[in-house]
Design a protein around this nucleic acid. Structure first.
Length: 677
RNA sequence: GCCGGCGUAGCUCAGUCGGUAGAGCAGCCGCCUUGUAAGCGGCAGGUCGACGGUUCGAAUCCGCCCGCCGGCUCCA
């Protein structure tokens, strides 16, 4: 008997009956057989490829791809990391025999495993665990898959007749997982599945697989345990807190080293460090989660907002400003009291209950209601750079990324139902335009629908969700559906930008809302002289100005585009006798800025450092402060009316003063981005 | 909020066995007048996060509180 499989290039392969993935690899070549870690198999009858062990038998008609370990094959990395997590668990079980193990998946860049340990462990235990892992790797245990009926699987993990502890000892988390698999199958009306388990040496784990063929396949020096953390069983804070151990592993030592180096790079461009080093903002014990912006931070802030404001005027927006604290009764009417009060701060004025605003919309609605509105006024696009306060759990605060007060670049668009779709479309394009200006062109989009806690009728929600989906589809924009993740008053389109390090950040949002206009009873007079209910769009582009600033800082590693830099030009006189000329240079920049009326007369940020430090010292200081242009002036420059240009650390030599001023001013005015951040 | 770790000068960090603190950088003063990433010298700077306890004596040991860092999203 023979069986026939097809390889990825379409070529056929004939094998003996009962041949495995490994046999197929061996039939192709001995090197491939040695390198094979799994197979990607598509059965003759089913469509999706499945990842299987090298020991898995093949069937006639299968299409097979041999998986080898490659950094650019995410599935191969997953197999590697998943096996590493099992090896780690085995090591932990050896060191702490009473440990209960729960789950241990591969994650981006590594893996973790959650344990309930008989005693707390500390960072220094990681080295012991790594040492034990090394032994297990050296022992080179084969990973053996077994398919067990449910009762046998339960017995394996210590739940058997008369409480007999199975080979793995009592493992309550595994038992719970198996029982859940059974009840999930029953609920779906499917047959009770067999349970797959993997063993390597004395260690057995409930696992879907696949795994590396043996523990010896973890390369020496390719893995490292990175941290210990608490994690709730199944991510639910009502459950037991387990100990999670994180690790990372790569196909080669070099890739691990590169990853660790990248981590260090990320640490260097952490916005919290840059905020301090560049004197942009600070945090204080007196106000945890409440950032303080310094003068240079405000320069960056204002550069962002000046641009933002000019674009909004051009896009037909007006701007309002509403109070921080409003009567609690307003928040009860808007639905925030019922849906959001856990995140709100409350206070009293003259004995009456008030709340600090967590959102700008109710205040904005009061502005709308301050006079009668006509259909001729619509659509009304009303922006608000509004500071909101939200009570976040203390453990989640993180620099500018997660704070307790922040500033939304909010806007509310009031329109007729007929105008809604066009307005959403307009905001969508506006959003992408603004991101591009800051240097973000890779944007991920999600559509979030009705959450459990919400206001408004089913019909409203259906309409609103329909409009958002329709816009995305008509614009042919790929998006991911996020069911149940909408705001309590309406569905939303969320925008995630990807930074230079590949991380994504949620920034913008567009929310269609039929509920709030009804709640706060706003209306407009139609052409028919009747009162009608407008629809409103809530939207933010940057989301939180603070957060966006943090993202910008990390994206550019502090080397901001010149138009955003808090100090744009630094002039360094070589000796005291050049100080007057240095100040002339600075004045020329300021005069030029005034002449072109930049950003409503915003100054160019030029500084002269004529301190008595050595030139090398002052250059170093300017570089550390990430000033884009350092202009050195000495006898030669003064005589020729030139400056010696050092642009972002690169000495560009002498250039005529006027030309440099014009070039730099053009770069700022055009808000030019850097070639490569 | 929960789990783990941490908290010494503005920053980065030493500080042994419990005997009341030290460096570099930054700051200030002076000298140097500088040619593309740290010139030289001096001075000053600390209720050792807060409070309570143990002790003849606490930065050090114990308790509690505050803050910071990592994680709690990735699911056999």
């Amino acid at each position: 008997m023979t069986l026939h499989v097809t390889l990825p290039d379409g070529s056929p392969l004939e094998l003996d009956d009962g041949a495995t993935v490994y046999d197929a690899a061996a039939a192709i070549g001995p090197r491939l057989a040695k390198a094979a870690i799994a197979g990607r198999v598509t059965g003759a009858s089913d469509g999706d490829p499945k990842l299987v062990d090298v020991t898995a038998p093949l069937h006639d008609g299968d299409t097979l791809a041999i998986v080898t370990l490659k950094a650019d094959d995410p599935e191969s990395l997953e197999v590697l990391r998943h096996t590493a997590s099992h090896v780690m668990a085995q090591a932990v079980l050896r060191l702490w025999p009473g440990a209960k193990y729960s789950i241990g998946p591969a994650i981006e860049n590594g893996f973790y495993y959650d344990f309930q340990l008989p005693e707390p462990i500390v960072e220094s235990d990681l080295a012991r665990i790594e040492a034990e892992m090394q032994k297990i790797v050296a022992e080179d245990h084969a990973t053996v898959r077994a398919e067990l009926p449910v009762d046998e699987a339960l017995a394996t993990f210590g739940k058997g007749p008369a409480g007999a502890a199975g080979p793995a000892g009592p493992q309550p988390f595994k038992v719970e997982l198996i029982e859940d698999l059974v009840s999930a199958a029953e609920a779906a009306g499917e047959p009770v599945p067999t349970i797959s388990v993997y063993s390597q040496g004395e260690f057995t784990d409930l696992c879907r697989g696949p795994h590396l063929p043996s523990t010896g396949r973890l390369g020496k020096g390719t893995y490292k345990l990175t941290s210990i953390a608490g994690a709730y069983w199944r991510g639910d804070e009502r459950n037991a807190m387990l100990t999670r151990i994180y690790g990372t592993i790569f196909p080669s030592k070099e890739e691990l080293a590169a990853y660790l180096e990248a981590l260090e790079m990320a640490r260097q461009r952490d916005h919290r460090r840059l905020g301090r080093d560049l004197d942009l903002f600070s945090f204080h014990d007196e106000g945890p989660g409440f950032p303080f912006f310094h003068p240079k931070g405000m320069r960056l802030w204002n550069a962002m907002i000046d641009f933002w404001r000019a674009e909004h005027v051009a896009a037909g927006y007006d701007e309002v400003r509403t109070p921080q604290i409003l009567r609690r009764e307003l928040w009860e009417r808007s639905g925030h009291w019922d849906n959001y009060k856990d995140n709100m701060y409350f206070t009293q004025i003259d004995g009456n209950p008030y709340a600090v605003k967590p959102m700008n919309c109710p205040g904005g609605l009061l502005v709308y209601k301050s006079r009668r509105r006509s259909y001729r006024d619509l659509p009304m696009r009303v922006a608000e750079v509004g500071q909101v306060h939200r009570h976040e759990m203390s453990g989640v605060l993180h620099g500018l990324f997660r704070v307790r007060y922040f500033t939304q670049d909010d806007a509310h668009i009031y329109c007729t139902p007929d105008q809604l779709e066009d307005e959403v479309r307009g905001v969508l394009h506006f959003m992408l335009h603004i991101y591009a200006a800051f240097g973000f062109s890779d944007v991920k989009i999600e559509l979030s629908t009705r959450p459990e806690k919400s206001i408004g009728s089913d019909e409203m929600w259906e309409r609103a969700e329909g409009v958002l989906a329709r816009v995305l589809e008509s614009e042919e924009i790929a998006y991911q559906l996020n069911p149940g993740d909408g705001a309590f008053y309406g569905p939303k389109i969320d925008f995630h930008i990807r930074d230079v390090m590949g991380r994504t950040w949620q920034c913008g949002t567009i929310q269609a809302d039929f509920a709030m206009p009804e709640r706060l009873d706003i209306s407009y007079t139609g052409a028919d002289n009747e009162e009608h209910r407008p629809v409103m769009i809530h939207r933010a582009l940057l989301g939180s100005i603070e957060r966006f600033m943090g993202i910008l800082l990390e994206h550019y590693g502090g080397n901001l585009p010149t138009w955003l830099a808090p100090v744009q030009v630094l002039v360094l006189p070589i000796a005291d006798r050049h100080a007057a000329y240095a100040r002339d240079v600075a004045r020329l920049f300021c005069g030029a800025a005034e002449a072109v009326g930049m950003s409503g007369g915003a100054p160019v940020w030029v500084e002269v450092d004529d301190s008595s430090e050595s030139l090398g010292k002052r250059i170093r200081e300017g570089q550390l402060q990430k000033v884009p242009y350092i202009l050195v002036v000495g006898d030669r420059e003064q005589k020729d009316r030139t400056v010696s240009v050092r642009e972002r650390g690169v000495d560009k030599g002498d250039a005529p003063l006027e030309c440099v001023v014009t070039d730099v001013m053009d770069e700022i005015r055009e808000r030019r981005l850097l070639a490569a951040p």
